[in-house]
Nucleic acid binder design. Sequence first.
DNA 1: GTATCATTGCGTCGATTAGACACAAACTTA
DNA 2: TAAGTTTGTGTCTAATCGACGCAATGATAC
Lengths: 252, 252
Amino acid sequence: MTVTQNTSFFDQHFLNHISLDCVVFGFHDNQLKVLLIRRKFTKEWALPGGFVRGDESIEIAATRVLQERTGLDNIFLKQFKVFSEPERSKRNPIVQDLVESGARPDLEWFKQRFISVGFYALVDFSKVEPTPDSISDLCDWKNLGEVDSLILDHNQILNKALETLRLQLNYQPLGYNLLSDRFTMPELQRLYETILAKELDRRNFQRKMLSYGILNKLKERKTGGAHKAPYLYEFNLENYQKALQNGLYGGW
Amino acid sequence: MTVTQNTSFFDQHFLNHISLDCVVFGFHDNQLKVLLIRRKFTKEWALPGGFVRGDESIEIAATRVLQERTGLDNIFLKQFKVFSEPERSKRNPIVQDLVESGARPDLEWFKQRFISVGFYALVDFSKVEPTPDSISDLCDWKNLGEVDSLILDHNQILNKALETLRLQLNYQPLGYNLLSDRFTMPELQRLYETILAKELDRRNFQRKMLSYGILNKLKERKTGGAHKAPYLYEFNLENYQKALQNGLYGGW
DNA sequence: GTATCATTGCGTCGATTAGACACAAACTTA
DNA sequence: TAAGTTTGTGTCTAATCGACGCAATGATAC
């Protein structure tokens, strides 16, 4: 089969009409954060994203993009929705950016209609080195509550990602990708509370969490805090993976 | 914005590289069924699918395709995954079909790499009028267990759709789109049992189902059967929609 | 050195829910 | 009219959920 190749963009060959956008979640200081980039000239904020090369699946393309933006391999990634409204890429600030920058190598290519596949990613905040792409001058974390207007339909994409994440929480385990290897029960609880934007009972949370059988309790405690030292835990990866696959609630 | 238009196919203008495939589920004779089409010349079976026009979102395109295949409007539709392996459309039987048919209006166009958005649809079996598309000679229901080799990665798409449907069952109501307006509790139970491929306790099923508050019990019974006449139910659409949105289990 | 105080570990209690099963009523067929 | 299924409804016990109590811990203030 002949793959139809396209106008090139920075010496890469990308598929026409198809893009991807990533909502990268991190957790730090009891805050849920999103990784954003800022356009060089328009100074507008956007979700990190990219295009698909001829030899890539869309997952591979997303992995590549996130590697470039975060420095990380092996990121937890999940497709959650395709955004395809014909109007969505009108008045594209990327085009505007390229015009104003003078560097407009393949301007025409950016003018086409794009259908974007939305991914969300969960990463260990402390391991990420935010790195802007070639048409951005900044890449940084923003608290979820402090994100304001993004380009195109990126606010909508972000909201849908969050909604999906909250749903996911109800039938899949979560935390391995967002916390460091060893963590305390209160830390895990803060994560859940932050995502759900709601307080949970400390004791019931622990009981429920332990009942899943995805945690290993360590003998060590986390010292240095101002109060009673909590035990450290780690995820039991074998059971964690099983729970990811089979879900946490039987349901039927 | 200028939408990049493409080689035309049957006087339509479709977006390059993007296709959609629909897994249409129906329920009849206590069997879960899938709507399939058969290629004119190669006689291979496939999922109904299509392409996206310049003025369509991908959901609108899927709705159009399903209207053509089933005669129905207002179909329950859900995106579940994008299939984008670079190898997936190699040795494309559609191209082969067009070659053998002699009618090869835009053969080149079909040779490109396609990224396909998978949808699943739930329909009332009795209301569907299966209608083949222009490169197929047959459109018909198949029992889920009796589907054998489909073109490309369509088996994989079908399996993923079924998996998603089963997951959905655990936190969303189901049945309104697959059953007729009035139905009996045993009928609803058979539907669940068929999807889950597992038997459920009659009495516990009824208790759980009623507890959701999405059913109206009618005074009428379904007569004509060989045994005690069961009551008829209908869905309480208001509560059904609410349950679809909020989910059935709190979780957290 | 000792009291203070927020936080953690572990446990209890009642109410609700889930799973297994019993029994009578209904309706067709033999 | 009896037999054989299927349906409607109810019961029992065990497990689970949500709300809360209390003692232990460990840095900080005095």
